[in-house]
């Protein structure tokens, strides 16, 4: 938690009261590999900040196949923001791909910080803007880049992630088949 507090303090002035509030609405947790933090169809109450390990959010289509939306590695936030924003049940599942350490925040209470401590707003806004940028980039990359280019970018964005993930996790993040992912890797190895 201290690391996160320092991170926040490096971008905004955080009062000791706001710091205490943040600590009071959060809980540090060690999560075992395979644990499900958010389950599709269930209620979503929490947002997770990853301090170590790797999480994955994915949806399942009507045919039963998984599609990876995001990986959550060190210093990343992960949840089902659609469910939190619309107050509906989860459309995503968030699972733990390796033993991980997270800080769990109650979503409603985290939003409540803006009312009680307006000084927190620039940090929150910056976080949201970076999230929107990241999503826009992901959509544009999906529209205009080749599978190889998307894979290269993925490795830069998520360095060392391949030690935690299965091939189908990565293929479904990139929107390609596992066979295509293998071909991309073979082509890269030849370069």
């Amino acid at each position: 938690m201290e690391e996160l507090i320092q991170k926040i303090k490096s971008s905004i002035q955080l009062s000791s009261e706001a710091e205490d509030y943040l600590k009071s609405i959060s809980k540090k947790k060690m999560i075992a590999k395979g644990s499900i933090l958010i389950r599709e169809g269930h209620n979503v109450n929490n947002i997770y900040y990853v301090t170590d390990g790797c999480l994955r959010s994915y949806c399942t289509d009507k045919k039963g196949k998984e599609h990876t939306l995001q990986f959550g590695i060190k210093n990343w936030w992960i949840s089902d923001y659609i469910a939190i924003h619309t107050n509906e049940s989860a459309t995503l599942t968030v699972e733990c791909l390796t033993e991980s350490t997270i800080i769990e925040f109650n979503a409603k209470k985290l939003n409540g910080i803006l009312v009680r401590f307006p000084e927190y707003e620039p940090f929150q806004r910056n976080l949201l803007e970076r999230h929107v940028v990241s999503l826009h980039k992901r959509i544009l990359n999906q529209l205009q880049l080749t599978a190889t280019e998307r894979y290269d970018l993925f490795l830069r964005q998520y360095p060392d992630i391949e030690q935690y993930t299965r091939n189908y996790h990565i293929a479904s993040y990139l929107g390609i088949t596992q066979e295509s992912l293998s071909r991309v890797r073979v082509d890269k190895a030849k370069q």
Partner: peptide, 11 residues
Amino acid sequence: KKPGNTSFEEA
């Protein structure tokens, strides 16, 4: 649990 990369029909 069924394989995540298969459809229901495949599973």
